[in-house]
Amino acid sequence: MGLLENWINKGRLKSPWVVHFDCGSCNGCDIEVLACLTPVFDVERFGIINVGNPKHADVLLVTGTVNHRNKKVLKNIYDQMPDPKAVIAIGACGTSGGVFRECYNVVGGVDQVIPVDVYVPGCPAKPDAIIDGVVTALDVVKAKLGLGEMPKVTVID
């Protein structure tokens, strides 16, 4: 049993299927997420596939601010994902609301609606930063499985 468990855990860390949800983003971060899948960045190296279906996904990539209409959709997608799962908020809008924090139809960052594991800053976040974000998310998953330490927060380096 221990062996199978080990294998499954290895699979979890080697095959994070992502579902990307555009939650009111300006498309800047969206196209950067897509750019990650393409030859120059090719995240399939890490086993990442964009599955487009929350039921198959392990990682939810959210770009953009949450507004009153899409917060239900976001919550719904999060609930449809089977455990274990991770959420990555991408870009200034996804992390905090960015420039749109004070708009009347904006709820704020993704963390207002669902728990977020990794915040990727940037406006828009570079594909490099998004790859870093996924790697950090895998570290978080690893820590949650009890296989490693939580990644540290570096404020100034």
Partner: peptide, 24 residues
């Protein structure tokens, strides 16, 4: 078209002067 009940019930017309400034 754009707005959900949360907004239509709290703001009568978001782009009119009286209700534009929505500071949290």
């Amino acid at each position: 078209l754009y707005l959900d009940e949360e907004i239509t019930s709290t703001i009568s017309a978001p782009f009119c002067k009286i209700s534009t400034i929505q500071k949290k």
